[in-house]
Write a protein that binds this DNA or RNA. Structure first.
Lengths: 136, 136
DNA sequence: TCAATTACTTGCATTTTGCAAGTAATACAC
DNA sequence: GTGTATTACTTGCAAAATGCAAGTAATTGA
């Protein structure tokens, strides 16, 4: 490994293309959705209804951290790590919002959920995730 | 083939997850970006700077048509087909806008492009694509 | 009429996904 | 403190998606 990661070259300088290189897949935005809801523990991401495979989850969390969208931290007195959005990550809220709005409007059977999932651990250490709009 | 396509089951009723099932990959949103710019011919999509492979392009156009996001039409007196967004597809503009905004703000080296690409055919039959904001 | 272009398809190597297990390190209950 | 459950992952492998290079039949333009 060299000093500079030398990112594997971008497809173009289009901001849409470059953003898609970071989160253009079936899972990344769902992990971000969970982060915005206040989910911060590995097992709670894995418990989301879409049932992401744990190898994919580990990979996506790594990628998000690597790209400065999320960060890994360990609360004092704990050993198990947690995850949270960085400012960069929080700035994705309009993206999630627009995606959620389109889905709600155009895909029958989709439902907005205003409350975070009821797993107790998701609420224990984190504030209820300030929400300016619904993201699912 | 039966009468009802019987969609291959959704992962959850979350609008984000469902939308991602339709356009959560590295290419679909780029095709939509081009459609929003007024690109309407197969060869012009293929000529975009990201250089989508033609088999992927054909597949993505089929998917977009199948999901009612784009439509295929043949201008009178022509034989070669064209593509355009449906209303459903035009409603994705806020998504593209939010993605583009995030990319411009957070990924250095990305550039907004206000004019459609200079290929003459893209302008010939289509109006210059009303733009309320930049999508790349 | 004849070459160039268009709108695709096909075949195959490479990469990414998805699934099921496995594991070492915590955390909790007693 | 001891034992059991949970957590945060990793590993291996099959299946699917992607990327690349060619190929092709139907148009189109000169």
């Amino acid at each position: 490994m060299s000093a500079s990661p030398a990112q594997p070259q971008r497809r173009s300088c289009c901001p849409v293309a470059c953003t898609l290189d970071l989160l253009g897949d079936r899972w990344t935005l769902l992990v971000i959705r969970d982060l915005m809801r206040g989910v911060d523990r590995y097992s709670d991401f894995a418990a989301s209804p879409e049932k992401i495979a744990t190898n994919i989850l580990a990979d996506r969390l790594d990628q998000l951290v690597a790209h400065g969208i999320a960060e890994r931290f360990t609360p004092p007195g704990r050993k198990h790590p947690r995850y949270r959005l960085t400012d960069r990550g929080h700035d994705l809220r309009p993206v999630l919002g627009a995606v959620a709005d389109w889905g709600l409007r155009h895909i029958p059977g989709t439902e907005a959920r205003l409350a975070p999932p009821s797993t107790p651990s998701a609420r224990r250490t984190t504030s209820p995730a300030r929400r300016t709009r619904n993201t699912d």
